[in-house]
Amino acid sequence: MPNVPAERRRVTLQRPGPLLIEGPVEVTSENGTTVSSDRFRVALCTCRRSSIYPWCDTSHRRRAGADDPRRAQPPPT
């Protein structure tokens, strides 16, 4: 994929959640490691909780509900 003319890609932002990108993609991390995927859509982790970072494994779901201030509070008893 290097040096291939860039095509327009659809990117979807979700909060909380991953960054969805139409593939195939090549991702270069902060330390210079490059990973690629030929899938038609990939989910990139934005919370860094994923055990398969930079790919999303939905780890954000386990904490998002507890941290979300919009989450409904139970009625007082």
Rank of each mutant, 00 (worst) to 15 (best):
R39C: 02
F40G: 08
S29V: 13
L20S: 05
R10I: 04
N3S: 09
E30Y: 10
A72L: 11
A66G: 11
A64K: 08
T58C: 10
G65F: 15
P74I: 01
G65E: 15
N31V: 14
V35W: 01
S59F: 06
D57P: 02
C47E: 12
D67M: 15
R63E: 15
V25Q: 02
W55K: 00
E30Q: 11
L19H: 06
A64H: 09
I52G: 06
V4E: 14
P2D: 05
Q14A: 00
R70L: 14
R39L: 07
W55E: 00
V11M: 01
W55G: 02
S51W: 08
M1E: 11
T12N: 00
Q14P: 01
R63N: 14
S29N: 15
P69W: 11
T28C: 06
S29R: 15
E30F: 10
P74T: 04
P54M: 00
R70G: 15
R70P: 12
R49N: 10
R49M: 11
P76K: 08
P16H: 10
R49H: 12
C45F: 12
D68I: 12
S36P: 03
R62D: 15
V4P: 05
P76I: 06
T33Q: 13
H60Q: 00
R39G: 07
T46K: 11
V11F: 02
R61W: 11
F40L: 08
V27E: 01
P74Y: 02
E22H: 09
H60M: 01
G23I: 00
R39S: 08
T12F: 04
D38P: 01
P5D: 08
D38V: 00
C47N: 13
A6E: 11
T28E: 14
L20V: 04
W55N: 00
Q73K: 15
Q14D: 03
S51E: 10
L44D: 07
S59M: 06
G65K: 14
C47W: 14
S37L: 03
D38G: 05
R10T: 06
R9V: 09
A64T: 06
P2N: 05
A6P: 12
V35Y: 04
N31R: 13
G17A: 03
C56K: 03
G23C: 05
V42T: 06
S59H: 06
S59N: 05
R15F: 10
P2W: 10
S50F: 05
A64M: 07
G65Q: 14
L19R: 04
N3F: 08
D67P: 09
N3V: 07
Q73R: 15
L19Y: 08
R63P: 09
Q73P: 10
L20G: 00
R49I: 07
P5Y: 07
G23A: 04
C56D: 04
Q14N: 04
I21P: 02
D38R: 02
A6I: 07
P74H: 02
G17E: 03
S50P: 02
H60Y: 04
P2E: 07
R61I: 12
P2L: 07
R41K: 13
R71N: 09
P74S: 02
R41Y: 07
L20T: 03
D38Q: 01
A64N: 06
P75H: 05
T28K: 08
G32S: 10
C56R: 02
V35P: 07
